[in-house]
Design a protein around this nucleic acid. Structure first.
Lengths: 147, 147
DNA sequence: ATTAATGCAAAGGATTTGCAATACC
DNA sequence: GGTATTGCAAATCCTTTGCATTAAT
Protein backbone atom coordinates (compact mmCIF):
# COMPACT_ATOMS: atom_id res chain seq x y z
CA UNK A 1 0.00 0.00 0.00
CA UNK A 2 1.67 3.14 -1.13
CA UNK A 3 -0.69 5.68 0.40
CA UNK A 4 -3.14 5.33 3.19
CA UNK A 5 -5.22 8.25 2.04
CA UNK A 6 -8.78 8.18 3.19
CA UNK A 7 -9.00 4.59 4.22
CA UNK A 8 -12.02 3.91 6.33
CA UNK A 9 -11.56 3.90 10.06
CA UNK A 10 -12.89 0.41 10.62
CA UNK A 11 -13.55 0.83 14.31
CA UNK A 12 -15.47 4.03 13.71
CA UNK A 13 -17.45 2.55 10.85
CA UNK A 14 -18.35 -0.51 12.85
CA UNK A 15 -19.47 1.64 15.76
CA UNK A 16 -21.50 3.84 13.48
CA UNK A 17 -23.27 0.80 12.11
CA UNK A 18 -23.69 -0.62 15.59
CA UNK A 19 -21.87 -3.80 14.74
CA UNK A 20 -20.57 -5.51 17.85
CA UNK A 21 -17.57 -7.74 17.53
CA UNK A 22 -15.97 -10.35 19.70
CA UNK A 23 -12.52 -9.91 21.10
CA UNK A 24 -10.90 -11.98 18.35
CA UNK A 25 -12.67 -10.08 15.61
CA UNK A 26 -11.68 -6.79 17.13
CA UNK A 27 -8.09 -7.98 17.13
CA UNK A 28 -8.34 -8.95 13.46
CA UNK A 29 -9.86 -5.59 12.58
CA UNK A 30 -6.98 -3.96 14.35
CA UNK A 31 -4.40 -5.92 12.39
CA UNK A 32 -6.18 -5.20 9.11
CA UNK A 33 -6.37 -1.52 9.89
CA UNK A 34 -2.72 -1.39 10.80
CA UNK A 35 -1.44 -3.30 7.80
CA UNK A 36 1.17 -1.54 5.73
CA UNK A 37 0.80 -3.78 2.71
CA UNK A 38 -1.80 -6.00 1.12
CA UNK A 39 -2.42 -9.01 3.27
CA UNK A 40 -3.55 -12.44 2.28
CA UNK A 41 -5.60 -14.48 4.72
CA UNK A 42 -2.68 -16.52 5.95
CA UNK A 43 -0.44 -13.54 6.60
CA UNK A 44 -3.23 -11.83 8.46
CA UNK A 45 -3.68 -14.99 10.48
CA UNK A 46 -0.01 -15.14 11.41
CA UNK A 47 0.09 -11.50 12.41
CA UNK A 48 -2.97 -11.99 14.57
CA UNK A 49 -1.49 -15.10 16.13
CA UNK A 50 1.43 -13.06 17.36
CA UNK A 51 -1.06 -11.37 19.67
CA UNK A 52 -3.40 -14.27 20.29
CA UNK A 53 -2.01 -17.69 19.40
CA UNK A 54 -5.40 -19.33 19.71
CA UNK A 55 -6.82 -17.56 16.68
CA UNK A 56 -7.93 -19.95 14.00
CA UNK A 57 -7.66 -19.50 10.25
CA UNK A 58 -11.37 -20.19 9.88
CA UNK A 59 -12.08 -17.22 12.13
CA UNK A 60 -9.93 -15.09 9.87
CA UNK A 61 -11.93 -16.09 6.84
CA UNK A 62 -15.21 -15.58 8.65
CA UNK A 63 -14.20 -12.13 9.78
CA UNK A 64 -13.02 -11.18 6.32
CA UNK A 65 -16.33 -12.39 4.94
CA UNK A 66 -18.17 -10.15 7.35
CA UNK A 67 -16.08 -7.10 6.55
CA UNK A 68 -16.46 -7.72 2.84
CA UNK A 69 -20.21 -7.95 3.22
CA UNK A 70 -20.20 -4.68 5.11
CA UNK A 71 -18.17 -3.07 2.34
CA UNK A 72 -15.37 -2.24 4.73
CA UNK A 73 -12.67 -4.31 3.11
CA UNK A 74 -12.08 -5.05 -0.54
CA UNK A 75 -10.81 -8.30 -1.92
CA UNK A 76 -8.13 -8.12 -4.58
CA UNK A 77 -6.64 -10.59 -7.01
CA UNK A 78 -3.51 -8.58 -7.77
CA UNK A 79 -3.18 -10.27 -11.13
CA UNK A 80 -2.83 -13.68 -9.47
CA UNK A 81 0.85 -12.99 -9.05
CA UNK A 82 1.15 -15.55 -6.27
CA UNK A 83 -1.26 -18.29 -7.10
CA UNK A 84 -4.94 -17.79 -6.62
CA UNK A 85 -4.94 -16.35 -3.16
CA UNK A 86 -6.79 -13.16 -2.40
CA UNK A 87 -5.52 -10.00 -0.83
CA UNK A 88 -7.41 -7.62 1.37
CA UNK A 89 -7.36 -3.92 1.99
CA UNK A 90 -9.44 -1.43 3.90
CA UNK A 91 -11.98 0.21 1.60
CA UNK A 92 -11.56 3.86 0.72
CA UNK A 93 -13.76 6.72 -0.18
CA UNK A 94 -12.32 7.03 -3.64
CA UNK A 95 -11.51 4.37 -6.19
CA UNK A 96 -7.94 3.46 -6.86
CA UNK A 97 -6.33 0.94 -9.10
CA UNK A 98 -3.48 -1.54 -8.70
CA UNK A 99 -0.42 -2.14 -10.81
CA UNK A 100 1.42 -5.41 -10.40
CA UNK A 101 4.92 -6.05 -11.67
CA UNK A 102 5.23 -9.51 -13.16
CA UNK A 103 8.97 -9.53 -12.59
CA UNK A 104 9.54 -8.32 -9.05
CA UNK A 105 6.03 -8.67 -7.70
CA UNK A 106 5.76 -5.11 -6.48
CA UNK A 107 2.33 -3.59 -6.17
CA UNK A 108 1.71 0.09 -6.82
CA UNK A 109 -1.51 1.95 -6.19
CA UNK A 110 -2.78 4.89 -8.13
CA UNK A 111 -5.75 7.08 -7.52
CA UNK A 112 -7.27 9.20 -10.24
CA UNK A 113 -10.44 11.05 -11.01
CA UNK A 114 -10.36 9.38 -14.40
CA UNK A 115 -11.27 6.05 -12.87
CA UNK A 116 -14.40 7.43 -11.27
CA UNK A 117 -15.18 9.33 -14.43
CA UNK A 118 -14.93 6.14 -16.42
CA UNK A 119 -17.29 4.46 -13.99
CA UNK A 120 -19.87 7.19 -14.45
CA UNK A 121 -19.57 6.90 -18.19
CA UNK A 122 -20.09 3.15 -18.01
CA UNK A 123 -23.08 3.49 -15.72
CA UNK A 124 -24.72 5.91 -18.11
CA UNK A 125 -23.91 3.90 -21.20
CA UNK A 126 -24.80 0.45 -19.88
CA UNK A 127 -27.57 1.24 -17.44
CA UNK A 128 -25.81 -0.49 -14.59
CA UNK A 129 -25.71 0.77 -11.06
CA UNK A 130 -22.18 -0.10 -10.04
CA UNK A 131 -21.36 -1.22 -6.52
CA UNK A 132 -17.83 -2.55 -6.86
CA UNK A 133 -15.07 -1.86 -9.32
CA UNK A 134 -11.72 -3.48 -9.70
CA UNK A 135 -9.03 -2.29 -12.06
CA UNK A 136 -5.73 -4.09 -12.17
CA UNK A 137 -2.86 -3.72 -14.55
CA UNK A 138 -0.01 -6.13 -14.95
CA UNK A 139 3.33 -5.30 -16.52
CA UNK A 140 6.80 -4.20 -15.62
CA UNK A 141 7.63 -1.55 -13.09
CA UNK A 142 10.13 1.17 -13.85
CA UNK A 143 13.07 -0.70 -12.38
CA UNK A 144 12.30 -4.03 -13.98
CA UNK A 145 11.84 -2.47 -17.39
CA UNK A 146 15.49 -1.62 -17.48
CA UNK A 147 16.66 -5.06 -16.53
CA UNK B 1 -19.97 -11.77 -25.13
CA UNK B 2 -22.04 -8.98 -26.50
CA UNK B 3 -19.89 -8.04 -29.47
CA UNK B 4 -17.27 -9.99 -31.28
CA UNK B 5 -15.63 -6.88 -32.62
CA UNK B 6 -12.00 -7.31 -33.51
CA UNK B 7 -11.31 -10.49 -31.70
CA UNK B 8 -8.11 -12.09 -32.82
CA UNK B 9 -8.34 -14.81 -35.40
CA UNK B 10 -6.59 -17.47 -33.39
CA UNK B 11 -5.76 -19.72 -36.29
CA UNK B 12 -4.27 -16.85 -38.23
CA UNK B 13 -2.30 -15.59 -35.24
CA UNK B 14 -0.93 -19.04 -34.51
CA UNK B 15 0.10 -19.48 -38.12
CA UNK B 16 1.72 -16.08 -38.18
CA UNK B 17 3.75 -16.99 -35.12
CA UNK B 18 4.54 -20.41 -36.56
CA UNK B 19 3.04 -22.22 -33.62
CA UNK B 20 2.17 -25.80 -34.52
CA UNK B 21 -0.59 -27.47 -32.60
CA UNK B 22 -1.76 -31.02 -32.22
CA UNK B 23 -5.15 -32.13 -33.39
CA UNK B 24 -6.69 -31.79 -29.92
CA UNK B 25 -5.31 -28.33 -29.41
CA UNK B 26 -6.59 -27.24 -32.78
CA UNK B 27 -10.00 -28.50 -31.79
CA UNK B 28 -9.86 -26.54 -28.55
CA UNK B 29 -8.79 -23.40 -30.36
CA UNK B 30 -11.72 -23.88 -32.66
CA UNK B 31 -14.17 -24.15 -29.77
CA UNK B 32 -12.69 -21.09 -28.06
CA UNK B 33 -12.87 -19.07 -31.23
CA UNK B 34 -16.46 -20.08 -31.83
CA UNK B 35 -17.70 -19.43 -28.30
CA UNK B 36 -20.61 -17.07 -27.99
CA UNK B 37 -20.17 -16.43 -24.31
CA UNK B 38 -17.42 -16.51 -21.71
CA UNK B 39 -16.31 -20.06 -21.09
CA UNK B 40 -14.87 -21.60 -18.01
CA UNK B 41 -12.45 -24.50 -18.36
CA UNK B 42 -15.04 -27.15 -17.64
CA UNK B 43 -17.57 -25.81 -20.13
CA UNK B 44 -14.89 -25.59 -22.77
CA UNK B 45 -13.96 -29.16 -21.96
CA UNK B 46 -17.52 -30.38 -22.37
CA UNK B 47 -17.98 -28.57 -25.65
CA UNK B 48 -14.76 -30.06 -26.93
CA UNK B 49 -15.78 -33.52 -25.76
CA UNK B 50 -18.84 -33.32 -27.97
CA UNK B 51 -16.43 -33.50 -30.87
CA UNK B 52 -13.74 -35.68 -29.34
CA UNK B 53 -14.79 -37.59 -26.24
CA UNK B 54 -11.23 -38.53 -25.43
CA UNK B 55 -10.19 -34.98 -24.61
CA UNK B 56 -8.98 -34.59 -21.06
CA UNK B 57 -9.52 -31.66 -18.75
CA UNK B 58 -5.78 -31.40 -18.14
CA UNK B 59 -5.28 -30.87 -21.86
CA UNK B 60 -7.79 -28.06 -21.72
CA UNK B 61 -5.86 -26.34 -18.96
CA UNK B 62 -2.57 -26.87 -20.71
CA UNK B 63 -3.90 -25.42 -23.93
CA UNK B 64 -5.38 -22.44 -22.12
CA UNK B 65 -2.04 -21.90 -20.44
CA UNK B 66 -0.32 -21.84 -23.79
CA UNK B 67 -2.80 -19.40 -25.32
CA UNK B 68 -2.56 -17.15 -22.29
CA UNK B 69 1.20 -17.12 -22.55
CA UNK B 70 0.93 -16.18 -26.20
CA UNK B 71 -1.43 -13.36 -25.32
CA UNK B 72 -4.17 -14.83 -27.47
CA UNK B 73 -6.70 -15.44 -24.74
CA UNK B 74 -7.44 -13.43 -21.64
CA UNK B 75 -8.39 -14.86 -18.31
CA UNK B 76 -11.24 -13.18 -16.46
CA UNK B 77 -12.56 -13.36 -12.94
CA UNK B 78 -15.94 -11.80 -13.68
CA UNK B 79 -16.27 -10.64 -10.11
CA UNK B 80 -16.13 -14.22 -8.85
CA UNK B 81 -19.83 -14.48 -9.49
CA UNK B 82 -19.64 -18.26 -9.61
CA UNK B 83 -16.99 -19.26 -7.17
CA UNK B 84 -13.36 -18.86 -8.03
CA UNK B 85 -13.35 -20.32 -11.47
CA UNK B 86 -11.86 -18.39 -14.35
CA UNK B 87 -13.39 -17.47 -17.64
CA UNK B 88 -11.65 -17.13 -20.96
CA UNK B 89 -12.09 -15.03 -24.02
CA UNK B 90 -10.19 -14.40 -27.21
CA UNK B 91 -8.01 -11.33 -26.88
CA UNK B 92 -8.90 -8.23 -28.84
CA UNK B 93 -7.07 -5.34 -30.33
CA UNK B 94 -8.73 -2.84 -28.04
CA UNK B 95 -9.36 -3.00 -24.34
CA UNK B 96 -12.83 -3.56 -23.06
CA UNK B 97 -14.26 -3.92 -19.62
CA UNK B 98 -16.79 -6.25 -18.03
CA UNK B 99 -19.86 -5.53 -15.99
CA UNK B 100 -21.31 -8.29 -13.88
CA UNK B 101 -24.79 -8.22 -12.39
CA UNK B 102 -24.79 -9.62 -8.87
CA UNK B 103 -28.47 -10.45 -9.11
CA UNK B 104 -29.00 -12.17 -12.44
CA UNK B 105 -25.40 -12.98 -13.28
CA UNK B 106 -25.47 -11.33 -16.68
CA UNK B 107 -22.20 -10.11 -18.13
CA UNK B 108 -22.04 -7.01 -20.29
CA UNK B 109 -19.01 -5.80 -22.18
CA UNK B 110 -18.17 -2.24 -22.94
CA UNK B 111 -15.43 -0.81 -25.05
CA UNK B 112 -14.29 2.76 -24.68
CA UNK B 113 -11.36 4.94 -25.58
CA UNK B 114 -11.43 6.17 -22.02
CA UNK B 115 -10.11 2.84 -20.79
CA UNK B 116 -7.07 3.02 -23.02
CA UNK B 117 -6.64 6.67 -22.17
CA UNK B 118 -6.63 5.79 -18.50
CA UNK B 119 -4.00 3.16 -19.13
CA UNK B 120 -1.74 5.66 -20.86
CA UNK B 121 -2.18 8.08 -17.99
CA UNK B 122 -1.24 5.38 -15.50
CA UNK B 123 1.78 4.30 -17.50
CA UNK B 124 3.04 7.86 -17.59
CA UNK B 125 2.32 8.56 -13.94
CA UNK B 126 3.64 5.32 -12.50
CA UNK B 127 6.41 4.43 -14.90
CA UNK B 128 4.98 1.02 -15.61
CA UNK B 129 4.88 -0.61 -19.00
CA UNK B 130 1.53 -2.32 -18.94
CA UNK B 131 1.00 -5.67 -20.57
CA UNK B 132 -2.36 -6.73 -19.25
CA UNK B 133 -5.31 -4.81 -17.88
CA UNK B 134 -8.46 -6.03 -16.29
CA UNK B 135 -11.36 -3.80 -15.36
CA UNK B 136 -14.45 -5.34 -13.88
CA UNK B 137 -17.46 -3.70 -12.34
CA UNK B 138 -20.05 -5.42 -10.24
CA UNK B 139 -23.51 -4.09 -9.56
CA UNK B 140 -27.04 -4.34 -10.83
CA UNK B 141 -28.04 -4.36 -14.45
CA UNK B 142 -30.85 -2.20 -15.72
CA UNK B 143 -33.50 -4.88 -15.32
CA UNK B 144 -32.44 -5.99 -11.88
CA UNK B 145 -32.33 -2.44 -10.59
CA UNK B 146 -36.07 -2.19 -10.96
CA UNK B 147 -36.77 -5.41 -9.13
C1' DA C 1 -31.52 -19.12 27.92
C1' DT C 2 -30.82 -17.84 23.38
C1' DT C 3 -28.10 -16.60 19.89
C1' DA C 4 -23.79 -16.15 17.83
C1' DA C 5 -18.75 -17.28 17.44
C1' DT C 6 -15.05 -20.61 17.67
C1' DG C 7 -11.83 -24.67 16.82
C1' DC C 8 -11.03 -28.46 14.55
C1' DA C 9 -10.88 -31.47 11.02
C1' DA C 10 -12.88 -32.67 6.94
C1' DA C 11 -14.74 -31.41 2.58
C1' DG C 12 -14.78 -28.61 -1.46
C1' DG C 13 -13.66 -26.62 -5.98
C1' DA C 14 -10.40 -25.22 -9.36
C1' DT C 15 -6.13 -25.99 -11.11
C1' DT C 16 -1.53 -28.16 -11.56
C1' DT C 17 1.73 -31.87 -11.72
C1' DG C 18 4.39 -36.52 -12.09
C1' DC C 19 4.85 -40.04 -14.85
C1' DA C 20 4.17 -43.75 -18.01
C1' DA C 21 2.05 -44.26 -22.51
C1' DT C 22 1.36 -42.18 -26.93
C1' DA C 23 1.57 -39.02 -30.84
C1' DC C 24 4.17 -36.08 -33.80
C1' DC C 25 8.03 -34.65 -36.96
C1' DG D 1 14.48 -41.70 -32.63
C1' DG D 2 13.95 -37.87 -30.11
C1' DT D 3 10.92 -34.25 -28.49
C1' DA D 4 6.49 -32.77 -27.20
C1' DT D 5 1.76 -34.03 -25.82
C1' DT D 6 -1.57 -36.80 -23.53
C1' DG D 7 -4.36 -39.35 -19.91
C1' DC D 8 -4.85 -40.48 -15.54
C1' DA D 9 -4.72 -40.03 -10.84
C1' DA D 10 -2.82 -37.84 -7.20
C1' DA D 11 -1.46 -33.70 -5.25
C1' DT D 12 -1.87 -28.87 -4.29
C1' DC D 13 -3.65 -24.55 -2.96
C1' DC D 14 -7.09 -21.66 -1.09
C1' DT D 15 -11.34 -21.44 1.04
C1' DT D 16 -15.61 -23.08 3.12
C1' DT D 17 -18.42 -25.97 6.07
C1' DG D 18 -20.46 -29.25 9.76
C1' DC D 19 -20.66 -29.83 14.17
C1' DA D 20 -19.72 -30.12 18.94
C1' DT D 21 -17.92 -26.69 22.32
C1' DT D 22 -17.61 -22.19 24.17
C1' DA D 23 -18.50 -17.29 24.62
C1' DA D 24 -21.53 -13.31 24.61
C1' DT D 25 -25.83 -10.76 25.83
Amino acid sequence: MSELAKRYDLQAELARRQVRLTRQRRLLVDVIQGATRHLDAETLWKQAQARDPSINLATVYRTLGLLKKLGLVDELDLMHLEGEKHFYEVSREHRHLHLACFRCGSIVEYQTEAFEGLQKQVEAACGFSIQIGRLEFGGLCQECRRA
